[in-house]
Design a protein around this nucleic acid. Structure first.
Lengths: 212, 212
DNA sequence: TAGATTGTTAATCGATTAACAATC
DNA sequence: TAGATTGTTAATCGATTAACAATC
């Protein structure tokens, strides 16, 4: 209790640390200093030490950080030491692509169900899942202990569906719909607004070109 | 010339402004004050005015901002007043999903080609595109005036392919591969690291739960 | 003109970087 | 012990917010 709030800036960097440490571990590297890691990741050593120290002292003076230990600890911090149950709402191109992508499962994110409101898709098999009608949603969520709902539906439907899911007790959304959800503060939303990302790239492409 | 550098924090917010203004425009709203927009978007009016004023005075004292004008101007700033030619590298689940998604085109992002190294996919039709072998890449890029390469290939291949594309003159990458590209400063990279995004959600889900 | 609201300067806040004492 | 490198405090930098004069 009384944990100091960690800034989202720090949180956003953790998955990247985790990735680099995983790669180092796989390469058999045993220890690394903040200095060496900073060179590898193109960030300052100071930032690395500050970031890690938000969660306690993982290193040792004169030695650095033990790669495997640090990797494990950051994994725990990120909640990767236990599995998460997910459902996908919307079995269109994107929903299917995510369902078929195996790497999420490797990190403990397990897709338990996929739903669509299009009857033509009912029963369609996608990897180990079968597309279900939206009518089943409510019951399924309570029965299967779902943590995260992945929204792959058009923005017109997303807000209402999210409202419904909140009523079913869903506590987190991975939102690919191009709209801002309006959910209670206790519910987490991680937006993936692909077109915003592409538009940002467009800006930077222009800006970079013209300045030269 | 001598444009002051705009911070990425500001740039990241522009697509969202653009989206809200587009919606207001579609609803027939003619003008809006920073105050009203701030309520709508859950940001401060001060930030809105600061952000817009990075690019010049789009408003009018006592009146506010003309929605249509502001929408158009931000569109220009973002480079949405002209089309961009894209290619997709990797015709797997994600590559195909992106190729099939129509909304990018509505914003002027046109997919001109899709490539894969798997012969089984050669010739496969995806919307108006046909999967081509990677061998065609070099020639295609120069012939079709490609602006942006969308990387939907495994991380093991991504770095090398990006290097090749840089040599062909590609100036921007939309990178879905879970790896950091190593390209010259003059080349823009926008990363979409889906698993990082999901992991961040996992952290926040945990943090939120435990603090209560 | 009076009222509203911008554009912009100044104040605050938070995040990053630098420095160094603690310590392995 | 001497050298290395962390953990942590202090300094700097940048981004956000507040305030208000300019002006429509």
């Amino acid at each position: 209790m009384a944990e100091k709030e960690i800034s989202q800036a720090v949180i956003s960097r953790l998955p990247r640390y985790f990735r680099y440490l995983g790669e180092l571990k796989d390469e058999g590297v045993e220890r690394i200093s903040s200095q060496d890691l900073s060179v590898l990741m193109h960030v300052t050593a100071s930032q690395i030490r500050q970031d890690f120290n938000n969660f306690g002292g993982f290193g040792q003076q004169g030695y650095g950080y033990n790669v495997e230990y640090l990797y494990t600890e950051i994994g725990k911090i990120l909640g990767l030491d236990h599995t998460h149950n997910l459902i996908i709402i919307g079995a269109g191109n994107l929903g299917q692509a995510l369902a078929n992508y195996m790497n999420f499962e490797r990190r403990g994110f397990v897709f338990e169900g996929i739903f669509d409101q299009n009857p033509a898709l009912y029963g369609k098999q996608i990897r180990n899942l079968v597309v279900q009608p939206m009518e089943n949603l409510r019951e399924f969520v309570t029965a299967h202990n779902i943590d995260i709902a992945v929204l792959c539906i058009p923005k017109t439907a997303a807000v209402a569906v999210a409202d419904d899911l909140v009523k079913c007790g869903i506590k987190a959304f991975w939102n690919f719909a191009h709209v801002d959800l309006n959910v209670p503060e206790s519910v987490e939303v991680e937006n993936v607004h692909l077109s915003d990302s592409l538009i940002k790239l467009s800006y930077n492409l222009n800006a970079n070109h013209h300045e030269a």
